[in-house]
Design a binder for these strands. Structure first.
Lengths: 345, 345
DNA sequence: TTTTCTTACGAAAACGTTAGAGTGAATTTT
DNA sequence: AAAATTCACTCTAACGTTTTCGTAAGAAAA
């Protein structure tokens, strides 16, 4: 194993001081060109690179940013990461990814670890468990410690920091509106428990659309999925009564894809009998049959924007930095789970 | 912004030396219990945590491992990461993820960056571009610098290091064999260019099965996909001639899902007219219709095994460490894109 | 009483780097 | 010739921690 080359070793080699070497490599005018040249040549030959750990310690920064996400096996989050990573690389930052696995405890642990000087700032989307516990002290403490934080997608109102969210309500409205304009009047919603903020937002968008088009809301058409149990079973009852929905809006891809599966099982065809719209950036939508009309979330843009805000805060010298909340537009990606109706606008 | 609390500050508070504080917090017997108690109480109250950067520098290790993957928007890789991350957390390691985006240059950059003391070891899957260039000097240099490296999935034979690979050939054999036993005799292969090692392995498994069952191989049934062009277009010709395949084995999920889409477009139904098997751990397979029979790769196990090997090497003191190559078994996950034939074994 | 041994702490080096302050010698200015 | 300036370096502190070594004071042993 080749020993790492350091300033000290180079200094010894030439019988000069460490600072001379350091300055020579920085092309300082304090050093004679003769000495500079030989030192630089030597350093180049041995691939000298300043030790990052030493620089981190000295500069009190790591040029690394931490990302905490609930799940990585999730297309939306990987899209966000792609956005973060790309910009980070351009700006010379590394990305450290931590998974909370939707667990409060692990989120706290991750935050704790990252806060300890490992990263210059953090981008996070909060775990479902944390949302249900409503305990956000770990985030507050982070901010008190002066570590820049940007929340994305699943954000919490009580925390003051930069935020990036998708226009969940708007997207849900768009989807529901589309179903209505396509002629649906008995529109079901498949959603998450209310503590999942994005689910709640999307439900509100759905309700808003119903109201605007004067369709009475019907509790029986709102299915709240418990992820612990079989999704298919929970969806079955939608197709059992004598009031089968003609349109279904699902707040994520899995729910939407599953709903189509169940509909087919009950002998209904999509989109002829039931139209379905999902909410996602996911891959599945393209490959279901029929392919799934969805509300696109633009995960990459979210990631990129989140990092922009973070770097903005990191670089900011202002005593009273003004936090921003950035809304990423969502829009409909029409595929084949909805009818191709000529809309007269 | 609350100032970070350090040993120095605690020392000042009590008018003792830094070393006393350090020792007190470590419960050293050299310090009187009286002093220890008050220092510990104080430290606890102010949430003292040793600064990671300083520890990194002093210990010459970071308790962080780097992972370089070609793509994160890819279910297989996220599974691997999940496996790595879980074990890493148990062992007190952090995970730093870098994306090469299949680019040689970015892979070199990432490696360079990680090599500089940022991580204690690296787990990598090589970029397609690197595979096609066959230039692996950046990996060699890494090893020369004494940084433990584990390659997974897309590994390179020339590099001596720990490796974890899926039994690609075996899995492909299994898939092809299944098709044959189901009665297919005109079996197509949809694969990547040969420089993608895993693609090549899978092709070999396919060929081996054909040979073993004495089915002549037919060049016309082997489609090599160029990812730059439309996948659908490249697959169309399979269904145009008068020699339509009755079985198709695709080396990944997207190809398999697309093949089904194209088959349907040409009026063939799966699995009645054509049976299809993919190779993946992906999510899509469950939601296509019919759902896709696949060769499961066990990404999580790969990730976990890769980290095990890495930690093994990191912890190893031996001058001549013996590298291992670990083969992760693959197996068939039968869904509905293949016929349910009663096999008489 | 002198020597040895504990006890309880402090000093210093080390990890690798940077940057400001210092220094002796040569050169220029007055 | 004395004073000031420039040159080309070196020294030192600092980032925060750990750990080995040193040492003063008091206790125990001789």
């Amino acid at each position: 194993m080749k020993q790492k080359i350091t300033l000290k070793k180079i200094a010894k080699e030439f019988g000069v001081s460490i600072s001379t070497v350091s300055k020579a490599l920085k092309d300082s005018h304090e050093i004679s060109s003769e000495v500079k040249e030989k030192i630089q040549a030597f350093a180049k030959y041995y691939h000298y690179k300043p030790n990052s750990l030493a620089l981190n310690l000295r500069n009190q920064k790591t040029k690394t940013i931490g990302v905490i996400i609930p799940e990585i096996v999730h297309h939306f989050f990987t899209k966000v990461i792609t956005g973060i990573e790309k910009l980070a690389n351009e700006k010379g930052y590394n990305v450290m990814i931590c998974l909370s696995n939707e667990s409060y405890e692990k989120e706290v642990l991750n935050l704790d670890m990252l806060a300890n000087g490992v990263v210059d700032g953090i981008i996070a989307s909060v775990a479902k468990e944390t949302e249900s516990k409503e305990d956000y002290r770990h985030f507050t403490e982070l901010i008190n410690n002066g570590i820049p934080l940007v929340m994305f997608d699943r954000v919490v109102d009580e925390i003051e920091c930069n935020k990036v969210i998708a226009d969940d309500k708007g997207g849900a409205f768009l989807a529901t509106e589309q179903l209505i304009k396509n002629g649906c009047s008995n529109i079901a919603l498949v959603t998450t428990p209310d503590y999942v903020t994005v689910g709640l937002e999307r439900k509100e968008g759905y309700l808003k659309a119903l109201k605007e088009f004067q369709i009475p809301e019907n509790i029986e058409l709102i299915v709240t999925i418990d992820d612990q149990k079989s999704i298919e079973d929970q969806l079955s009852f939608l197709f059992r009564g004598n009031n089968i929905p003609d349109g279904i809006f699902a707040v994520n891809e899995i729910y939407a894809a599953t709903v189509m599966k169940v509909a087919r099982k009950f002998g209904y065809s999509v989109p002829e009998d039931v139209e379905v719209i999902g909410f996602t950036d996911g891959l599945i939508s393209e490959f279901t049959s029929p392919s799934l009309t969805t509300v696109a979330q633009h995960g990459r843009s979210m990631g990129q924007k989140a990092l922009e805000l973070l770097l903005d805060e990191i670089d900011s010298q202002e005593a009273h930095y003004q936090y921003k909340t950035n809304l990423i537009q969502t829009d409909l990606k029409i595929r084949n789970s909805t009818k191709k109706v000529q809309l007269q606008n």
